[in-house]
């Protein structure tokens, strides 16, 4: 199990800490604001009120033992840089820091930050993509040429197996998962559907009505499939 420390409990830091705890990770949260700590205390493994720019205090908190650190004190740029630097000096393998702008990101990389994130910008981009293409439920840009998207299965592919659909041959796109809703009747007699995700579906898997396809491939191929 990975031991993760989240420093800074604003909206971003709190959301990450809650999500990690719900996935059974060992999570330590740190903030100088006692109220924020009190709110998260029942959810996480450990919660400490301390000033994370204080090297000695971090040492006493046993920060060296953590595998991953998330620095979410974005608005206080000076503090975020200092904390990132200290965490790297303590030998934490993966330090992820929230940046406010490009210059902040550049400095963070210089002090050894392993991953810089811009939560608002990243989320904004993803939301924009999903609004431009309403058929796309989710979108992740993997490189400037390749992406991962989730779309409604085009009607013209319903009833065909993946082999017959020839998405790889025609579009250079792989179906990495199919999300399927199977209609069912509940005990009280009303309808419901059971959701299953078929990871790495076989070539013989048939595309059904209401399926969502998770596709990986070149952007032009992904655009082509959406026009089917």
């Amino acid at each position: 199990m990975r031991h993760i420390v989240v420093i800074g409990l604003g909206r971003f830091g709190s959301a990450i800490a809650e999500a990690l705890s719900s996935k059974q990770c060992e999570v330590l949260v740190i903030d100088s604001d006692e109220k924020k700590i009190e709110r998260l205390e029942p959810i996480v493994t450990q919660a400490l009120v301390l000033d994370a720019t204080d090297e000695e205090a971090l040492r006493e908190a046993g920060i060296r033992d953590f595998d991953v650190a998330i620095v979410a004190v974005g608005a206080d740029i000076e503090a975020s840089i200092l904390i990132t630097m200290l965490l790297k000096e303590f030998g934490i393998k993966e330090v992820v820091t929230k940046a406010m702008d490009n210059l902040h990101a550049k400095i963070l990389r210089k002090v050894g930050c392993d991953r810089v994130v811009f939560p608002e910008r990243d989320m904004g981009q993803r939301l924009a993509e999903s609004l431009i293409s309403p058929k796309i439920f989710d979108y992740i840009e993997l490189s400037s040429t390749h992406s991962l998207i989730e779309i409604d299965a085009p009607e013209s592919l319903e009833g065909r197996t993946l082999k017959q659909a020839e998405l790889r041959a025609k579009y250079g796109v792989s179906v990495i998962a199919i999300k399927r809703k199977t209609p069912t009747i509940r005990e009280d007699g009303e309808t419901e559907f059971k959701e299953t995700t078929i990871i790495g579906p076989s070539a013989d898997e048939e595309i059904q009505r209401g399926d969502r396809l998770c596709l990986l491939g070149k952007d032009e191929g992904l655009v082509g499939i959406q026009k089917l």
């Binding site: 409604d152 809703k181 209609p183 009303e190 309808t191 419901e192 559907f193 009505r209 209401g210 969502r212």
Partner: peptide, 12 residues
Amino acid sequence: YYNLGIVYEAMN
């Protein structure tokens, strides 16, 4: 109405 909602949700 609930059951109708379920059909539409199943159709995305």
